[in-house]
């Protein structure tokens, strides 16, 4: 019997689970190797659990989410959180630095109908997660590599070092050294293939902190490039603002 795959959504934009549909050429092979049992974005047909692999997209932002994620863990062999929302709280974790009640009063005519948590948090803060796939959005080749490794019972090749590594492998010239552009690459987790520096932009940190980030040293270098304290806060508060290394560094400059 083929292993069963489920795809779950929490607070997110759907971009990461769409990466699975983006696999296009490889999708048929994935469907041959796995039974896509629960994937509402792709099909209304739902096969009941338990599931071998659960891909979880999105962050935990409501009391209901807390119950759902427990239920998913209980019926899954492997839980893999995919994307910046699921692994770090996502862009919506910017609420974590403010009072969420103020937002509710500004946005909703009847805020008393809204049930939400004060913080947007990663899946791994609530349940045991077997693997985290980074990125905003995730890279489809990394998703395929992970599924492939799981099916073949081998270690996935998903480097956790800095984006600098990817720039150098593809021959991109360092934009920080050659143009003085502030770039989060030296503290950011590899995985995107170093897209932004290849187009003469600094890295935005979409894949969150690398395995041994040192943002304090990078901030010093940014300052000598003329980056202000306020700009430093904004740099670290992107899609991964609640990832501990970025969160702590942004608080240093508030």
């Amino acid at each position: 019997m083929k292993p069963k795959l489920a795809v779950w959504k929490f607070a997110s934009c759907d971009g990461c689970q769409l990466s699975l549909l983006d696999c296009e050429d490889e999708l048929l092979m994935v469907a041959e190797a796995l039974e896509i049992a629960h994937f509402p974005e792709a099909s209304r047909a739902v096969v009941a659990g338990p599931y071998d692999i659960s891909l979880v997209e999105g962050s935990i932002t409501t009391p209901h989410d807390l119950e759902r994620i427990e239920a998913i863990r209980a019926q899954s062999t492997w839980v893999i959180s995919i994307g910046a929302c699921a692994t770090a709280g996502g862009i919506q974790a910017l609420r974590n630095f403010q009072a969420v009640e103020d937002f509710m009063r500004m946005v909703y005519a009847r805020p008393e109908y809204i049930q939400t948590l004060s913080q947007s948090t990663a899946i791994s803060e609530h349940i045991k997660v077997d693997f985290e796939l980074r990125g905003c959005p995730i890279n489809k080749n990394q998703l395929l590599e992970l599924i492939n490794a799981l099916l073949n019972r081998r270690k996935p090749h998903l480097p956790s070092e800095s984006v600098c590594h990817e720039c150098k492998l593809r021959g991109t010239v360092c934009v920080m050294v050659s143009q003085g552009i502030p770039c989060l690459g030296p503290v950011t987790h590899a995985g995107c293939g170093a897209i932004c520096p290849a187009y003469q932009r600094g890295c935005y940190g979409c894949f969150g902190p690398s395995d041994s980030p040192h943002p304090a040293a990078l901030s010093q270098a940014f300052k000598s490039l003329g980056v202000s304290e306020a700009e430093l806060v904004r740099l670290y508060r992107g899609f991964n603002s609640n990832a501990p290394a970025f969160r702590e560094e942004s608080l240093q400059h508030e």
């Binding site: 150098k168 030296p186 040192h214 040293a217």
Partner: peptide, 9 residues
């Protein structure tokens, strides 16, 4: 170690 990014450049 306090200055190095260990970025591998």
């Amino acid at each position: 170690g306090e200055r190095c990014l260990s970025c591998s450049n």
